[in-house]
């Protein structure tokens, strides 16, 4: 952004909802009850986004580049072993707690203000952009991300790619070299293609719901992931957010306990664009 324009529009830029008039705001809803933790989304992300396979040693050293990871926990948030039970059990009798964790595309992203070269910034359609060719690799954003979903290219991973594996690389986006931070983009190349497509069809301001699917959503065997435009009142993701009473622009939701929607680390006021829905267990059995 031009310095002059930034100074001129300072008060507008400082508004809480900076992009309120934009027609898009990409968001996601993930149903943790449907999520089985199978990992199809993770592999799909590797395939779609040219993520490098780092190998055993580098994985062990913490250089893995999975934009999406499936975390699982054995306990409830309050450390009780299972819902409605306080005493420890020999076994995780209610199964595991899976949660796919990727960039939450925070609307008040802590990573954005700290980048010295503005390589990460908020796009008008509500994405937390990471511009690879602008990144200088100060890694401040990675520290400041509470979800720890930013991945740094500590090596030139793609140089290890043996022939003919490089033929698989997706030509729609770049292959990152060493010294660059990267993260989940909500498949920005697909969003871009979808918008172009809408423009071809002659309705540039409205991408039809379901036209743009992220790679993880596309492959999810149980369709636990729903992606779409939160500003489109008829979109599935908007309906899910509304049904689960999760609203934007707040760090605490005013909703009944038994309504399942929530956003992770909402209390930090980072405004994630990803809503999760509680996992469910039948307590009678």
């Amino acid at each position: 952004m031009g310095l002059r324009r930034m100074l001129e529009n300072w008060s507008d830029l400082r508004k809480r909802d900076y992009y309120e008039n934009e027609p898009y705001m990409w968001g996601m809803a993930i149903d943790l009850d449907k999520c089985t933790g199978c990992g199809a989304c993770v592999t799909a992300c590797y395939v779609e986004n040219n993520l490098p396979v780092v190998g055993k040693e580098k994985f062990a050293s913490g250089y893995a580049m999975h934009w999406m990871r499936i975390e699982h926990y054995w306990t409830e948030p309050d450390d009780s072993p299972e819902i409605g039970q306080k005493e420890p059990s020999d076994h995780p009798e209610r199964g595991a707690h899976f949660i796919p964790m990727m960039c939450q595309q925070c609307n008040h992203a802590p990573c954005e203000p700290v980048c010295p070269v503005a390589a990460t910034y908020h796009t008008p359609d509500g994405l937390n952009a990471q511009v690879y060719n602008r990144c200088v690799g100060s890694r401040y954003c990675g520290n400041n991300c509470p979800f720890k979903v930013r991945y740094f290219n500590f090596f030139d991973f793609w140089k290890d790619l043996p022939e003919p594996l490089e033929q698989q690389l997706n030509p729609d986006l770049s292959v990152r070299s060493k010294g660059i931070m990267e993260k989940c983009t909500f498949c920005v190349q697909r969003i871009r293609a979808g918008k172009d497509h809408a423009e071809d069809e002659g309705h540039p301001h409205s991408v039809e719901d379901g036209t743009i699917v992220t790679a993880c959503q596309q492959t999810c065997p149980t369709q636990a992931i729903v992606f779409g435009n939160l500003k489109d009142k008829s979109s599935r993701v908007h309906q899910l957010w509304a049904d689960h009473q999760v609203k934007l622009n707040r760090h605490e939701q005013d909703k009944p306990e038994d309504v399942r929607g929530y956003r992770v680390f909402e209390e930090l006021n980072v405004e994630p664009s990803v809503m999760y829905m509680d996992r469910v267990r039948d307590t009678e059995i």
Binding site: E71, E76, H97
Partner: peptide
Amino acid sequence: HTFHQAGRKLVKTISAEDF
């Protein structure tokens, strides 16, 4: 190797009845 949520609300469970 406990994989605790350490007090964070990452994954919570509600009962099927409520659901």
